[in-house]
């Protein structure tokens, strides 16, 4: 990996030889290296157990990497002490497969929990958020298509609506990057496409990169401009979505007839 020229802005995210060995010896990530230079949607594909989840959890250290480096802008995240780690996590928004909302809290409380890294304990305990945060939360509610639902309890929403709250929560952090873990695996195909489209357009609006784990190859190709392929913890493909050929898929997933899985680029514009 070439070092950035002196004086140039550091990449948005630089992963270098990131390795995770779980207790018991399973090597979930094996010297994975890549950089994100510009805001775009990057899909991470690979079979179950290939290390997709571990990869994005090592970036914000929900899983502690065994070795390697994760640089977010100018900040080295690996080895940060707890207080600074929390500061760094504020800059990383995360979206989950199971939405991971707090069921008994309202939609508004779930959205505002995205600000927890930035408000003090007492203020958050008393739900006294700065007026700007609250205004932003209402704007966010509107943006993700849930206007008027602020007082509903999170467990009263449908799957698609809950994921919209999850997306809103992550964006409330005003993050430098979005980590997205299988955002559509718990959703029906139509909702899945709507959610992917929403993530893509929000990332574009805010000019932030999104690193999206996804096992649906067609969705990955339709909604991302770059694809990373993981196989048994190793990065075996890194290139534009258009270059995802049957040969590459065989490399990532093993031999299979891939002709029906891959769609011609640009087929996927059916209106939001």
């Amino acid at each position: 990996m070439a070092a950035a020229p002196a004086g140039a802005k550091p990449p948005l995210l630089a992963i270098d030889k990131l390795t995770k060995v779980y207790p018991g010896g399973a090597r979930a990530l094996d010297a994975v290296s890549f950089t994100i230079e510009r805001p775009e949607v990057i899909a991470v594909i690979g079979s179950s157990g290939a290390g997709k989840s571990t990869l994005i959890r090592c970036i914000n250290r929900l899983v502690e990497p065994t070795s390697g480096s994760v640089r977010l802008g100018a900040t080295e995240i690996v080895g940060l002490p707890p207080a600074q780690l929390r500061q760094a996590r504020r800059r990383i928004g995360m979206i989950f497969q199971e939405f991971n909302l707090v069921d008994r809290l309202t939609v508004m409380e779930n959205l505002l929990s995205g600000r927890l890294g930035s408000v003090g304990f007492l203020a958050s305990f008393l739900r006294r958020y700065p007026p700007r945060d609250i205004a932003n939360a209402f704007a966010m509610l509107d943006r993700v298509g849930l206007a008027g639902l602020q007082d509903s309890r999170a467990d009263a929403l449908s799957g698609g609506q809950r994921q919209r709250v999850g997306i809103g929560r992550a964006l409330m952090q005003d993050p430098d990057i979005l980590l997205v873990d299988e955002p559509t695996a718990s959703l029906d195909p139509k909702t899945a496409r709507q959610i992917m489209r929403l993530i893509g357009s929000l990332a574009a609006e805010r000019e932030r990169p999104a690193l999206v784990n996804i096992h649906d190859v067609a969705l990955a190709q339709g909604f991302s401009s770059r694809i990373l392929g993981l196989k048994a913890g190793r990065l075996v493909f890194d290139g534009p979505s258009a270059e995802l050929t049957p040969a590459v898929l065989t490399e990532i997933y093993g031999a299979e007839d891939w002709s029906r899985t891959i769609r011609p680029a640009g087929e996927d514009e059916e209106g939001a």
């Binding site: 914000n60 929900l62 989950f96 939405f99 069921d103 929990s113 890294g117 999850g166």
Partner: peptide, 11 residues
């Protein structure tokens, strides 16, 4: 999950 999510916000 919710614990992980809240932790991920920097809480």
């Amino acid at each position: 999950g919710p614990i992980e999510a809240v932790r991920a916000t920097g809480a």
